[in-house]
Nucleic acid binder design. Structure first.
Length: 960
RNA sequence: GCUCGGGUGGUGGAAUAGGUAGACACGCAGGACUUAAAAUCCUGUGGACAGUAAUGUCCGUACGGGUUCGAUUCCCGUCCCGAGCACCA
């Protein structure tokens, strides 16, 4: 057994052997040392354990809706509990949100600060396929580990509200929302989701010709036709109007994962999870009609406090562009077709010299002339063989084929050829374009390559080597548009198009409907069964439809999703849907469920929702900008349309914490030897750079013994040292196991304590900035906490706080700090607060200040940052029950006067003098004061003076 | 290519309604206490030059211009780094 006493004796013995001192003397020194330590040292591990169990047993952070208190909702993006556990980068945002939460509580708010787990997902399933371990089991193990790690950091979550997306009582409401979407359609006139019954009524009276709806229905029909349709036909038509619908679409199919993926789960033709190739494939899939909300998703960005870059990312993703949809008559031999294109540059119509179709476009078959058939088919086949990545990487590789048919330019009347090329995408606009080579770089390159005519439309533009894409200049060669600026010509052209009935003004969005089914096991089952091949919703009373246990998580032998293997996966005699929902399903409304997590009758009760309303502060990474944060906003808007939630936007303010990168260390092995040379001397040798585990390195000094034991290969390693030490090189890289630079928060907690870790993570730099983790600086923060602790004790280790009234100097330190802490937290500058604390402690130490009137408020100020030490000191000062229930100290204006006195008035940047200025001074008094110095001033008026700037002959500015 | 951020000591970073640049911390150097170590505390620390010294002078916020009594901050141009988007018609 390795108890502390044995360790202690072993340590003393080795000291005795090492130093040659008598054993008795060794014990004497050790005793003196440890006694001293026990008495007054800051014992963080005892303190932190004590208060963490206090908080948990007293449910200190439990909150209830209370209409007598103002509410505040602080939310973290809940984690996916991976098998690797947390590294030091994960808690950054959690620490920031916890500081804000604790601050808001001190300010008298009733703060909702919950936590949970985004527990469905691919990694657990992949692990299950490899090992046969059910995802239920590994997920709950991972959650347990996450919880242990989170608890050590002293977060003030209300754990009674914990949710897990894989819990049936939670995903009941994910399924419920899906059913609601199935039962609704989007009315473009009312601009909201409406019950499907209203659509059926409308079909019964007018058919679908008069209805403005978001849909993908291909037919038009009148009321009598509708009534004559069979049930199956009716159901197929309704399906093309539902907000949750099955539709055939080109999907991202990942063969390696055996599932379809959403656009945000794919990057450059490869899956984000696993980096497997993804191909485009037409499939019937469940989809959510997110595109119906495109305009509202865009508009809603105006009223929320998110960073500009994040809003910009969402705007790009939604990709609104305004222009016109125009009809071109196309002749293929004797047949004539009307083909529509979308353009934002209707003004360039006179420069259209050819048209281009996407190879996948439905027009290709109709418009291919018999004599070109062979060539077109060859080309289309060639395009199909290219992967998505190849098509993207070869952007300037021009390919294409002439279709053999000609369109007519409706304005010039000229015949123009129709081409087919991969540079036009089937998925955007109509899959066909009018090409204006003079003013679009892609059209220009194409025209040059195939020697098609180029007509310049802007006076004086140079198109000899490239197109003129800018929307500026005076129009020419453009008939009635000649002489206008481009900005005038665009609306004028659209107007003319509409007048001549050649097309209509249109807005196009890049945002596409979200593909909502995944052919995998570890997700929410769809509450859908198939009757005679028709997708039919389960009644709400059947929810939740629980995920059945499985023995094998592979796809079935016939290529069906894993759920096809489940026994009795039927509703009565009818088969249930075998796909499951994607990862974003469970995370789309979790912030609502936290408001009322135990409600078994509703997603969230009206009362709870009315009280908590929306998330006031949401902290998380930018990686969710185009995924979760779009889907959540969509989901919330849908629920808003149904009157289930009272706010249209779910996240009022959003802060993106930066990434914490790893700081890797290197050692330098001399080639073909087992000798390592220190950084400063490596130029003298031929060396190989090797990553070394950062846990064996301190302040870039290698622990030689630990290094030898790290890997058997290095057992006999020799070192060339500089000044007796081995200095390692370093660089900043992603934090990952393979770079040996992962720092586990548990290790830091054990060594320095959670309070030090929390403060250090904040001290590292601005919250929103990415920065490397560098353990080197942590001693400074730890030293500060020790100093802070010592402030409360005298030299004998006795609590030394007195009730003497503080003097003005001490009050100034305090009130300066109050203002600083308040300003910094409100502006999320948590890093600079730590400096202010350090200065404050140093000043109080110099003054030997032991006064309760100063120290007690100081404890409150520091408690959001270092809650454990604050609780301990708070209770030592005789307060009950918890500093979390204290009130934030009030900043006293009186001491601002003192600050003014201190601020030097500079003269010519060199001479300095101090002037006594009073906050109550008015303009005349200041003028008189300065006139005595024979200088003139300008004064713009105001209430308080902060500083006064003087230069030769005049005062330039008085800052108020 | 387009959009948005950002370039400050050996290091992380302070300071922007223009006003003592480098707070605070790390590291480094020196010192105190100690038989010793640990811990703790104190001093110095952007660069160059001058002086025995206190101190003084000049140069310094990526680079080049501009506005201003005064610019790290505002404006124009250039370079570099990071993030996002990328045949979006």
């Amino acid at each position: 057994m390795d108890n502390p006493l044995k360790k202690y004796i072993r340590f003393a013995t080795s000291l005795h052997l090492f130093s040659g001192l008598p054993l008795t003397k060794v014990f004497y020194y050790l005793c003196a040392f440890t006694n001293d330590r026990n008495k007054m040292e800051y014992n963080f591990s005892d303190i932190e354990q004590k208060w963490q169990s206090f908080w948990s047993s007293h449910k200190t952070f439990k909150v209830e809706a209370d209409s007598s208190l103002p509410k505040f909702y602080v939310l973290d993006m809940f984690p996916y509990p991976s098998g690797a556990g947390l590294h030091v980068g994960h808690p950054l945002g959690y620490i920031a949100s916890d500081i804000y939460t604790r601050y808001k509580r001190l300010k008298g708010y009733n703060v909702l600060h919950p936590m949970g787990y985004d527990a469905f997902g691919l990694p657990a399933e992949q692990y299950a396929i490899q090992t046969g371990q059910p995802p239920q089991k590994t997920t709950s193990q991972n959650i347990k580990r996450y919880r242990e790690q989170l608890d050590k950091l002293g977060f003030s979550y209300d754990w009674d509200r914990e949710i897990r997306t894989c819990d049936p009582s939670y995903y009941k409401w994910t399924q419920w929302a899906f059913l609601k979407m199935f039962h609704h359609w989007y009315d473009m006139e009312l601009d909201k989701a409406c019950p499907i019954e209203t659509l059926i009524d409308a079909f019964n009276t007018h058919g679908n010709t008069r209805i403005k709806a978001a849909h993908n229905c291909k037919e038009e029909f009148g009321a009598s036709e509708w009534k004559a349709f069979s049930d199956k036909e009716k159901e197929d038509i309704l399906m093309s109007y539902r907000i949750a619908y099955i539709g055939e679409t080109t999907v991202n199919w990942c063969a390696a994962l055996g599932t379809v993926l959403a656009n945000d789960e794919v990057r450059e033709g490869f899956s984000i999870r696993g980096d497997y190739p993804v191909v485009q494939k037409k499939m019937k899939q469940w989809q959510l009609r997110v595109s119906a909300y495109a305009e509202r998703l865009l508009k809603g960005l105006e009223d929320i406090t998110w960073s500009d870059s994040l809003k910009e990312m969402q705007r790009n993703w939604i990709g609104k562009s305004e222009g016109a949809q125009m009809e071109f008559m196309v002749k293929n031999g004797s047949e004539t077709f009307s083909m529509s294109v979308f353009t934002t540059r209707a003004d360039t119509i006179f420069g259209v010299t050819f048209m281009v179709l996407a190879p996948e476009s439905e027009w290709v078959n109709l418009l291919t002339a018999p004599e070109q058939k062979e060539e077109v088919e060859k080309y289309v086949a060639y395009v199909k063989t290219k992967t998505e990545r190849e098509r993207m990487s070869q952007t300037h590789h021009v390919t294409g084929v002439f279709s053999g048919s000609y369109a007519t330019n409706p304005f010039t009347g000229k015949e123009i050829p129709v081409w087919i090329s991969e540079y036009v995408m089937a998925g955007y606009g109509t899959g066909a374009i009018m090409a204006v080579p003079a003013h679009d770089s892609r059209d220009y390159i194409f025209a040059r390559h195939f020697k098609l005519p180029i007509i310049p439309l802007i006076e004086g533009c140079d198109i000899s080597s490239e197109s003129f894409d800018a929307k500026e200049g005076i129009m020419c060669n453009s008939g009635f548009l000649d002489g206008m600026t481009v900005q005038e010509a665009i609306p004028a052209a659209i107007e003319e198009v509409e007048k001549r009935k050649l097309g209509v003004r249109t807005t196009n969005y890049r945002l596409r409907d979200a593909i909502f089914s995944r052919q995998r096991y570890w997700g929410e089952p769809f509450p859908i069964y198939y009757r005679d091949g028709m997708a039919t919703p389960l009644p709400e009373s059947q929810l939740p439809l629980e995920l059945p246990p499985l023995d094998s998580f592979h796809p079935s032998s016939s290529g069906e999703p894993p759920l096809a293997n489940a026994k009795n996966w039927t509703y009565g005699e009818y088969p249930l849907e075998t796909s499951t929902m994607p990862g974003f399903a469970g995370s789309s409304a979790y912030y609502l469920r936290y408001m009322d997590p135990h409600n078994s009758r509703e997603l969230v009760s009206r009362d709870s929702n009315n009280y908590w309303q929306d998330v006031d502060l949401y902290i998380g990474g930018t990686e969710h900008a185009t995924g979760h944060l779009i889907y959540s906003r969509f989901w919330n808007k849908f629920l808003f349309d149904l009157g289930i939630v009272c706010k249209e936007e779910p996240f009022r303010k959003l802060v993106n914490q930066g990434m914490i990168q790893g700081r890797s260390n290197f050692v330098y092995r001399i080639k073909n030897t087992n000798t390592f040379v220190s950084l400063g001397l490596k130029e003298n040798y031929k060396t190989t750079e090797l990553h070394v585990d950062v846990n064996l390195v301190e302040n870039d000094r290698l622990n030689l013994e630990a290094f030898r034991q790290w890997n058997p290969e290095y057992k006999d390693a020799r070192f060339i040292l500089e000044n007796g030490e081995y200095i390692c090189g370093w660089t900043v890289e992603k934090m990952s196991k393979s770079m040996f630079n992962v720092v586990n928060p548990d290790v830091i907690c054990q060594r320095y304590g959670a309070d030090t870790l929390r403060m250090y993570e904040m001290f590292l730099g601005p919250l929103e900035q990415s920065k490397p983790w560098d353990t080197n600086g942590i001693d400074g923060v730890h030293r500060f906490l020790k100093k802070f602790w010592r402030l409360f004790f005298d030299k004998n280790g006795e609590l030394a706080v007195t009730n003497n009234p503080p003097v003005e100097k001490e009050l100034k330190i305090l009130h300066n700090l109050i203002r600083k802490v308040e300003d910094d937290i409100e502006s999320f500058s948590f890093n600079t607060t730590i400096s202010a604390f350090m200065i404050g402690v140093n000043q109080l130490t110099d003054l030997d200040c032991h006064k309760r009137g100063i120290l007690e408020p100081f404890v409150i100020l520091i408690s959001p940052y270092a809650p454990h030490i604050a609780e301990e000191l708070w209770s030592l000062l005789g307060n009950k029950p918890s500093v979390a229930n204290a009130a934030f100290p009030v900043f006293n204006q009186e001491f601002i006067k003192e600050l003014i006195f201190e601020y030097p008035v500079s003269f010519n940047g060199k001479l300095r003098f101090k002037k006594t200025l009073d906050i109550n001074m008015n303009k005349d008094e200041i003028e008189r004061l300065v006139r005595e110095d024979e200088r003139t001033i300008k004064y713009s008026g105001g209430e308080k003076i902060r500083k006064i700037i003087v230069v030769p002959e005049k005062i330039i500015n008085i800052v108020i």
